[in-house]
Simulated scan of single mutants.
Amino acid sequence: MRWGDMDAYGHVNNVEILRILEEARIHAFGPPGGTGGPGQEPLVPLFSALPAGTQALVVEHRVRYLAPLTYRNIPLDIDVWVSSLKAASVTIAYIVHDPVTGEACAKAETTIAFVAAGTGRLLRIDGEQKALIRPFVGRPVFA
């Protein structure tokens, strides 16, 4: 968490929660190919191993705020897993926990679709991608 993530009430702002979820998603599944520099390998290289010209785009976010998350200068605990794997989309689920109390502060899901960069055409998830994802459907990537 960052100091600037707080809102006027001293809680982590709801918009910052989406950024935190993005960081957890990238940590688990990798950054989109061709972005950033070398770093830690993702646990599941789903996004970093996409074929050239393929984009992973957010289709939808759903967030349920369960309890205020106050700023602490230590990392959050976030469970991340795949809640749904469909022909052309994958839904990633999260539970954000207060790192001191362990209380669940937010439950969320992000649906991602793969599209062809040049045309914007929706792409089906191929067998190799499904093989990467299947072990984490309903099972935490990291907790």
Rank of each mutant, 00 (worst) to 15 (best):
D7K: 05
A8R: 03
H11Q: 05
H11F: 09
V12W: 14
N13E: 12
N14I: 04
E16S: 15
I17L: 15
L18E: 06
I20S: 14
E22T: 13
E22K: 14
E23H: 06
I26N: 05
I26M: 14
I26D: 04
I26W: 13
H27Q: 15
F29A: 05
G33T: 06
G34Q: 08
G34H: 09
G36P: 06
G37C: 04
G39Y: 08
E41A: 15
E41M: 09
E41S: 13
P42V: 07
P42K: 10
V44F: 07
F47Y: 03
S48F: 08
A49K: 11
A49L: 09
P51D: 12
P51R: 14
A52L: 10
G53R: 11
G53D: 12
G53H: 09
T54E: 11
Q55L: 15
Q55M: 15
A56Q: 13
V58F: 02
E60H: 14
E60I: 02
V63W: 02
V63A: 03
R64N: 14
L66Y: 03
A67N: 03
A67L: 02
A67Y: 00
R72I: 01
I74G: 06
I74R: 14
P75L: 11
L76K: 04
L76F: 09
I78D: 06
D79F: 10
D79C: 09
V80K: 05
L85C: 01
K86E: 15
V90Q: 01
V90K: 00
T91G: 00
I92C: 01
I92T: 01
I92A: 01
Y94N: 12
Y94L: 08
Y94F: 12
D98N: 03
D98Q: 01
P99S: 08
V100Y: 00
T101Y: 12
G102Y: 00
G102A: 03
A104S: 15
C105Y: 07
A106Y: 12
A106H: 12
K107E: 15
A108I: 09
E109L: 03
E109P: 03
I112E: 11
I112K: 15
A113L: 04
A113P: 12
F114L: 10
V115A: 08
A116I: 01
A117H: 13
G118A: 10
G118D: 13
R121F: 02
R121S: 09
L122D: 11
L123C: 14
R124T: 10
D126H: 04
E128P: 00
E128W: 06
Q129F: 07
Q129V: 00
K130P: 06
L132C: 04
I133E: 13
P135K: 02
V137Q: 07
V137Y: 03
R139I: 12
